[in-house]
Nucleic acid binder design. Structure first.
Lengths: 220, 220
DNA sequence: GTCTATACGAAGATAGAC
DNA sequence: GTCTATCTTCGTATAGAC
C-alpha cells in the first residue's frame, strides 16, 4: 500500500495519513453501518462520506454485502486473534469459568474500547451487526466467531462439569448477547445510565455479572 | 381485495375472521418487521401480503413509521398491562429480586409465547425492534416501556439495598437486553442450541440466570 | 490498476384523482 | 376507502478517462 507517498516538491502535506480509497470505504462503512444498520445505510451515503465515487464499492468489493463482509472481517480479526491466544494459554491448564469469561469479554470490549473514539466505532459496528434484523447479516457475523465458539463451549463445559450442556450453551448465548449489547452502546450517550465512563470498569462489571450467573444461575 | 366476497343476501360467511384492512396490515407488519427489520421490509411487501393496496398504509396510519408505531403499541399493550398489574401487587409488600425479575420477564416471554405461533411472531417483532440499528426505531420501543422502567428501578434498588444505583441500572439494562434477545429468537430454529422447546422452561432458565447475576454479580 | 460519469431497472413513499 | 400516477432514491452495471 502506497501511503505516505513522497514528501516531494509540493505533494502531500505532512499530517495526512493518506488512506487508500479502499481503506476510507471500510472506515466509513464501519461508522455508518454501526449507526444506521446495513439496510438503513445507502452506498451513496458511504461513498460521499468517503469522498469516493459511487462505483468504487463495486470496483473494490463487488457489492454492498461484500463491503460489509470485508468490514466485519477486518473488525473481528484482532478480536479473534486475541481470543485464540488466550484460549491457547488457558487450555494448557484447567481454567475457571471466570478466566474463560474474561478471555471472551475483554478482547471484545477492552481491546476495542481502548483505542480512543475509533475503537468505539468498531465496537458499535460489531455489536450492531451481531444483532441485525436480517438473518443473512447476522450469519456474516456468526461466521467470524463460529470457529472459536466450539472451543469456548468445550472449555466452559469442562469448567462447569455440573451444568447440563444445554445450560452451558444457554449461558454462552447470553454472554454473546450481553457483549454485543454493550458493544453496540459504545457511542450512545444513554442519559440516566452513565456506566460507560470507564471502559475497563464496564468490562469488570460485565464479567462479574456473568461469572455470578454462570456460577449459580445454570441448571444442572 | 375482499376474498370470499359476498355470499349474497346475508353478511359475511362463517369461517372468515373478517379482519379489517387495518388489522391485516398490523398483523403482516408484525410478521415482516420481525423477520427483516424496519428498514429491510418494504411497504410493498407488507401491502401485498396483507392483500391491500400500496397506499393503504398511508391512509390508515400516515406513514411507514406510524404503522410501526401502531404495531409496537398494540404488541406491547398486554405486556405492559400485565407488568403494571404485577408491580401493583408486589409494591404492596417487600418483593425479592426474584419476584421483581419474574414480574418483568414472564409477561414478556410467557404471556407472549403461550399463544401459539401467533405469539411467537409478536415476541420476535418486539425483540427485534428493541434492538433495531436505528436510534429512532429503538426510541419507539423505549417509549413504550419507559413509564414502567422507573418503577422497576426503584423496586429493584429497594430489594438490593447494598447495590449501587449504577449497578442496579446496569443489571436492569442487561435484563432488558437478554429478554429482547430471547424474544427475538422466538422463531429461529437455532440448530445446536435447542433450548426453546418449552417456553416456560426458557423463562425459568432466564430468570434463574438473572437472579444469580443480580444477587452476586452487582457491585456495591 | 484506479477511478469517474452516467444509465438502468426496481423499489421507496406520498399525493391526488376516483 | 381505494387505486393510479409520480417523483425520489436505491443498488448495480458499464464505458472510458487518468
Amino acid at each position: 500500500m502506497p501511503e505516505q507517498a513522497v514528501a516531494g516538491g509540493k505533494e502531500n502535506s505532512v499530517e495526512t495519513p493518506v488512506e487508500t480509497t479502499r481503506e476510507r470505504l471500510l472506515n466509513v462503512a464501519e461508522q455508518r453501518f454501526g449507526e444506521g444498520g446495513y439496510e438503513g445505510t445507502s452506498l451513496r451515503a458511504i461513498t460521499v462520506a468517503a469522498a469516493a465515487n459511487i462505483a468504487a464499492v463495486n470496483y473494490h468489493f463487488g457489492s454492498k454485502e461484500a463491503l460489509l463482509r470485508a468490514a466485519v472481517a477486518r473488525a473481528m480479526a484482532p478480536v479473534n486473534t486475541e481470543r485464540r491466544r488466550r484460549l491457547d494459554q488457558l487450555e494448557a491448564g484447567s481454567p475457571t469459568p471466570e478466566q474463560l469469561i474474561r478471555a471472551f469479554i475483554e478482547p471484545g470490549l477492552d481491546l476495542v474500547l481502548r483505542r480512543g473514539e475509533r475503537g468505539a466505532v468498531v465496537a458499535r459496528f460489531i455489536g450492531r451487526i451481531a444483532f441485525d434484523p436480517s438473518q443473512r447479516i447476522r450469519d456474516l457475523y456468526a461466521a467470524e466467531s463460529d470457529p472459536i465458539e466450539s472451543r469456548y463451549l468445550s472449555a466452559l463445559q469442562a469448567a462447569l462439569p455440573q451444568a447440563a450442556p444445554e445450560s452451558v450453551a444457554f449461558g454462552y448465548v447470553n454472554m454473546l448477547g450481553l457483549l454485543a449489547l454493550h458493544q453496540s452502546q459504545a457511542l450512545s450517550r444513554t442519559p440516566g445510565v452513565a456506566e460507560d465512563e470507564d471502559p475497563s470498569k464496564l468490562a469488570e462489571n460485565l464479567i462479574a455479572f456473568l461469572v455470578a450467573a454462570f456460577d449459580k444461575g445454570l441448571r444442572s
